[in-house]
Design a protein around this nucleic acid. Sequence first.
RNA 1: GGCGCGGUAGCUCAAUUGGUUAGAGCCCCGGACUGUCGAUCCGGAGGUUGCGGGUUCGAGUCCCGUCCGCGUCGCCA
Length: 590
Amino acid sequence: MLRTHTCGQLRSEHIGQEVTLCGWVESKRDHGGSVFIDLRDRYGLTQVVVGPPEADSELIDTAGRVGTESVILVRGKVAPRLEGKINDKLDTGEVELRCEHYEVLNACPTPPFTPGQQELPGEDLRLKYRFLDLRRTAMLRSLELRSRIIKIMRDYFAEHDFIDVETPILGRSTPEGARDYLVPSRVHPNSFYALPQSPQLYKQILMVAGFDRYVQIAKCFRDEDLRADRQPEFTQLDMEMSFVDQDDVIGMIEGLVKRTAKELTGEELSLPLPRMTWDESMRRFGTDAPDLRFGMEIVDITSIAAEVEFRVFRGAADSGGFVRGIRLEGQATEFSRKRIDELTDYVKKDFGAKGLAWFRVEEDGSLWSPTSKNFSAEHLQQIGAALEAQPGDLLLFLADTWEVTCKGLAGLRKRLGAELKLYDERAMSYSWVTNFPMFERDEEEQRWVAMHHPFTAPLPEDLEKLASDPAACRAQAYDLVINGSEAGGGTIRIHDGKIQQQVFELLGIDEQTARDRFGFLLDALKYGAPPHGGIALGVDRWVMLFAGLDNIREVIAFPKTQKASDLMTEAPGEVDAKQLQELHLRTVKV
RNA sequence: GGCGCGGUAGCUCAAUUGGUUAGAGCCCCGGACUGUCGAUCCGGAGGUUGCGGGUUCGAGUCCCGUCCGCGUCGCCA
């Protein structure tokens, strides 16, 4: 080692020792007669003093000219800080290193930004110079946290007899689900591998193989548009268990959640975690991933709306739609017309709502709105009562299809919850959403599509609905929700070839197609498949949520931009004509 | 693909209704300084206002196109 200690290590007990430190020049204070250098490495910051009597004027001069972010080595004795000069902002603030020997290991030209600077540079710059950005303490902490979380996960599953198995990255494209990333085959002209969207099929095969408990920290790839919490390549903790039901899988994960919460936040969670069915979640929160850190639940007033004169409400109710609303406690006077117009714009543009109806609750408890003359006093009173309105509240309503009211109100609730700071940002909320529907209707293509994936088992009591009423058929599927974010999702799988066949039929996958695409799985299910199920946890999201961040890129060392490029390596890039030729590919001008 | 925000000095930002030579802080360069820790003081350098076109006597500012970054909807079994 070039060094004897790290920059975060020295304390008063080291006073008098001769030590060598290596690190980056975080900052420099040049007084002419002596120079103070803050030397930084991963472990901390130590003040180095280059001055008399240890250093001669030439050394002082040299040190005074060192550039920020240069890598240097300094040797000297640890000395106490002068009387009253202790820096309690630093762990090493009681001491300093009096430099006797100084070496520049690598000089740094003026960097585009420095890790220690006050204002955070633009994100594009941070991504281009990620090696500088990663020197920032905040990035270091995020990635340390990530490392800790992954270790907790690995330890936990190892203790519970899970086998860590690696599954292939080069696989076969499965047309269901997200868009695949494709890799052309050199050996097989016109054929392509697909990068895994998840190790789903492999882990089921491992269950058939009798592995009983499988786990993997798996990279997954989906060629879909990005979001603040979504990257095209991401990490899942993927697991699968045999001879289990939904409660077994949930119980296993709850143990992990409890341990993680305990180790990271010190919070002692009481299990089991709250559970809610999908139906209930949509009814109360309009989303399958409700943020339970605050209330502001959705209230349905369709039955009242059906009676009123106001056309927007009655029209929605008469045409099979819904009128649902939320209550903003004490916000009547806080929300100007302009602010309400902004919210109206938001629900129109983002969720296709036709408008946003609102009422102010007056001092006497009566409801007022620009449209209140279209309501009888009695109806207004009923609406107020339904939402438990108090004087000073603001009530917001959407009158639309079930779907639009769900999405719009869930959007409003999420946005307003954050804007009005209705919850403690450090608070964590964990819960399960269960009993998802098996199928969704794809109106464009006029067919059923699997809500989770085509291997999801229906609830035993809904088995006959597969044939009679697919829309009402519920699945043995469960999502873990943390702070309104989907932090994981899993299912019990179909282990019966006949039921699998039935699901494929319903999805419009005929026997031949099923055989072509999933023949190996159907074979495996035939040759002695145990009942099995599992879950995949979004590792990046876990880290993001436990770090209290709202952006997944902050917990990934080398993330991609919204257009899926890497600004540092400039991936993706063009390739040589020769490479294309070997792959039997030709590009087309766009 | 839609909607929205942004792009001005190396960095973070400002620039009135379209009007003088596009400013400030930080950084950088030179000088001063025996204790600073956001050092201080003096002086200085630094600009194709993302790119292309248009309107205008005059464009950082208005219009059209385009590229890039961010947010969001669609999308994400």
